[in-house]
């Protein structure tokens, strides 16, 4: 069997990043509206309606696709904002919307039967039954798989899931099950599920104390980094914590996921698309990561192998991991 084309799905936090991603060789770009309907609701980021229309026009002119992430969970009594986002994404010609909430999937499949639906990683569907739920009831065409499966498990799942599989290839990964972690709102009142932010910037503070960089989230200390020790995000799941009297990275170290060396295996496993995380990061990041993955994918297609490109410098904690894609992570 000829391995299928691996679609490279790239982040765009701004219109400039969208253009950068297209120029660097993204097949598909994903982005969100400038409000809490998307899971990267950070200040100064994202697209207003006009910018989204322009971004979609630009990508389509280059033959690329745009996915609109509407992947948070509407708050009680406020679903209208999310419905409007779905209506607008459909009207602007988005190639698909990325959804997580059951109510929104119900709305989108009922009101926009022609709109392609992707299941967000925020829905954390990691087995055939939950995927069957979303496929049979809402007709999802693709699911972004949670970052907790090994390559072998992904292969087994792809055979039975009945929709396209998109997996994370690069970026910061949380160790908690996506969409089911409220540690951020426990400390700050705002979380990825409802507000689209983890460790919101207004609750983060950095300071220098005796050569250490101290990182706080809300009222609590998340980490103290030594003079030249690489740092990570102030997210609770990357905090240095004390259990049984021993300080450690109890949940996960500040490392970035990079499975560029597993691309041949993922391709063989029948994965449809690779997702690069990082809508909160800058154009420079987008350009560098997308170019590296583009070059590797092209080389694999041509020669069946690719030279290793080092991206560790831009990874969280300046360090890379294969995460759960290799057994032993759990």
């Amino acid at each position: 069997m000829t391995p299928r084309y691996l679609e490279l799905v790239c982040p765009a936090g701004t219109p400039a990043a969208l253009r950068t991603a297209v120029e660097a060789g993204a097949d598909t770009v994903y982005c969100g509206f400038r409000d809490e309907t998307n899971a990267r609701n950070y200040p100064g980021l994202n697209f207003d309606r006009e910018e989204m229309a322009e971004g979609i026009r630009f990508a389509h002119a280059h033959g690329r696709h745009v996915l609109v992430a509407i992947n948070t969970f509407p708050r009680p009594g406020q679903v209208a904002l999310w419905h409007r986002a779905i209506d607008d994404a459909a009207a602007l010609g988005a190639n698909a919307v990325i959804l997580a909430d059951i109510g929104l999937l119900d709305y989108a499949s009922g009101h926009h039967p022609g709109l392609r639906l992707h299941l967000s990683v925020q829905a954390a569907a990691s087995n055939t039954l939950s995927l069957a739920f979303y496929r049979e009831r809402f007709g999802i065409r693709r699911a972004v798989l949670p970052r907790v499966l090994t390559v072998k498990e992904i292969g087994a799942l792809v055979e039975r899931m009945g929709v396209e599989a998109e997996v994370f290839a690069f970026g910061s990964l949380g160790t908690m099950t996506e969409g089911r972690c409220i540690l951020s709102s426990y400390l700050t009142g705002r979380s990825p599920s409802s507000d689209g932010v983890c460790a919101p910037a207004e609750h983060v503070s950095l300071s220098e104390e005796d050569g250490e960089m101290v990182m706080r989230l809300g009222p609590l200390t998340m980490n103290r980094f030594g003079r030249d020790e690489p740092a990570g995000y102030p997210t609770p799941c990357k905090a240095r914590l004390v259990a049984r009297g021993i300080p450690s990275y109890l949940f996960d170290e500040p490392v970035g996921l990079n499975m560029i060396e597993l691309l041949p295996e993922l391709k063989a496993a029948g994965v449809t698309a690779l997702k690069i995380e990082g809508r909160q990061r800058s154009r420079a990041y987008v350009a560098q990561v997308v170019r590296a993955f583009r070059a590797t994918l092209d080389a694999l297609d041509r020669d069946g192998r690719a030279p290793r490109i080092d991206l560790s410098a831009i990874a969280e904690g300046s360090k890379e991991t294969l995460g759960a894609y290799r057994k032993g992570w759990r």
Binding site: P230, A231, P254, S282, A284, A313, I314, A315, S318
Partner: peptide, 11 residues
């Protein structure tokens, strides 16, 4: 030219 998260991670 430089991603600020990258610069922050690298200190």
């Amino acid at each position: 030219r430089l991603d600020s998260d990258t610069a922050l991670f690298a200190r």
